[in-house]
Design a protein around this nucleic acid. Structure first.
Lengths: 211, 211
DNA sequence: ATATATACCGAATGAACGCTCGAATTTCGA
DNA sequence: TCGAAATTCGAGCGTTCATTCGGTATATAT
């Protein structure tokens, strides 16, 4: 429970932050592979090369480590998303930019993303997860706002915008499960694919009743 | 490890199977809420009203209980899916029927589904999960075959069929996370929504560059 | 009615786990 | 160079957990 105190000396501060991030990244990798609860701290000591005591120099607890993983995931993504919607650009363009940023972030934080999805039930229930919950909701709200603005300016027409948003969230949040860094599809191509799909859904109903 | 032996007397057999299914359903509910590893057997004894010994009368182990949950989920769904594709019907119709069956199954087994998604990492890694893995893959293959048949008979045109399948899997597998039995959308409506989205994606590229 | 199969109990067990703490070592700033 | 800060160690503590097992109670078949 005792809060971790990073070093006050400037020369050590950087090294400390770097190692802390390394620990978090290693933990994200193990948690994504084996699950959070199923990964023991001794597996984490082995993977980091630190002993138990050394490990706890960089983290407060296993719980807090999980929260840190989610913070590293959501903080920069939400910041970037806010930049995008702050720019003056048509909603279709903002949607495209959001998807590109999102998929690039997923590609860079695949493990974090898998852990985040895996531990959804903890995130939704426990009070110490309020901040993380709020960030996820804020991001989804940004997306919904872009779709709403598209409806307002006439470039998008949804039968049910809430449902459209849920399909988008489904597709994107499932991506980490199959994304392969050396695979056929780049994050950009995937983002474009999702974007086209949603924009097609946002066209007025096609007349073509299949014969 | 010792295998469970259901009663040989016919009069007791039915009751035994019923209670066993109740135990599995209760476990699915708890696991979906709190996570598999985070749920203790004593929480399960409390929820079932059985004591530890009584509980182990119906299950072999916590591990095997997880496998049973997935079996109850995948066995009937795969069987129904095989019936649908065995019928002589156009691929668009089969796709629609598959989605309806799938979403109905999700609505009826929401907890099972959440557990299945949550424990994906275990399922993909451990050898005792081969059967479950195989069933999931078989179901996805059935879906892909329907799309491929649609391409062959000219009713569907995908730029990248594999990608289309992944978007579909993403949308549907995400559904249990937000599906509300008393919500605005019924499983049928959701299935129709997904179906329309995919069929729109399967139309030749629209000429309408937005003006 | 009796024997046997079935159903259930719950204290006990041994293993695994997260985390602490006092000590030893290394690094930095003055 | 020296003292303080920072880093690391790892045995051990207290707890929790899945599972077992000897036993009792109940239901069924003959």
């Amino acid at each position: 429970m005792a809060a971790i105190s990073p070093p006050t000396r400037p020369a050590l501060r950087e090294r400390y932050e770097r190692r802390r991030r390394e620990v978090i990244a290693t933990a994200a990798r193990l948690f994504a592979e084996r699950g959070y609860q199923a990964t023991s701290m001794s597996e984490l000591t082995e993977a980091t090369g630190l002993a138990a005591g050394g490990l706890y120099h960089y983290i407060e607890s296993k719980d807090q480590l999980l929260i840190s993983i989610c913070d590293e995931l959501l903080d920069p993504l939400l910041e970037r998303a806010r930049e995008i919607v702050a720019e003056e650009a048509p909603p279709t363009r903002q949607l495209r930019d959001l998807l590109h940023a999102w998929l690039a972030h997923i590609a860079d934080h695949r493990d974090h993303m898998l852990v985040f999805a895996q531990e959804r039930h903890v995130i939704e229930r426990e009070p110490q997860w309020r901040r993380v919950r709020g960030q996820r909701k804020a991001f989804e709200k940004l997306l919904d706002d872009v779709l709403a603005r598209g409806e307002r300016d006439g470039t998008m027409h949804f039968e049910d915008r809430g449902f459209a948003l849920l399909t988008l969230l489904g597709m994107v949040n499932y991506t980490p499960q199959w994304l392969n860094p050396r695979g056929r599809l780049s994050p950009e191509q995937i983002a474009d694919g999702y974007c086209e799909l949603i924009l097609r859904a946002a066209q007025p109903a096609l007349l073509s009743a299949r014969p």
